[in-house]
Amino acid sequence: MQVRPSQPEGRPAIGAVVPRFFFHLHGGQDLSDEEGVLLDDLDAVRVQALKGARDIMANEVKSGHLPLNESICVTDEQGAVVHRQRFPDAIVIVHESESE
């Protein structure tokens, strides 16, 4: 995770008004996030979704599998969708013909 500048080091997060966001997975297997992550704002949400999508794809690629059908859907504490990260949008695919 990113260490949030808004959370002073050594202080508990208790009482801080940092919103919680939930990162649900869709596509391959639908998987809801019951736990969520505390993040400052939507910029931080976008960064985490991008990193998450790349992290999953990178690991899958190591076993020869690239799940471009998946996406991460982020909701806020009220359940409203605030961001969607499709896996293909998280990477640039360079094809053979383009690289020549």
Binding site: M1, F23, L25, Q29, L31, D33, E35, V37, Q48, A49, K51, G52, A53, D55, I56, N59, I72
Partner: peptide, 22 residues
């Protein structure tokens, strides 16, 4: 430990940890 903390202990992201735990 939260998913985020397991992620930080294993060099992964929280969303990936959630997927793997599933």
């Amino acid at each position: 430990m939260t998913q985020e903390q397991i992620a930080d202990a294993t060099g992964l992201t929280a969303v990936h940890v959630n997927r793997t735990l599933r």
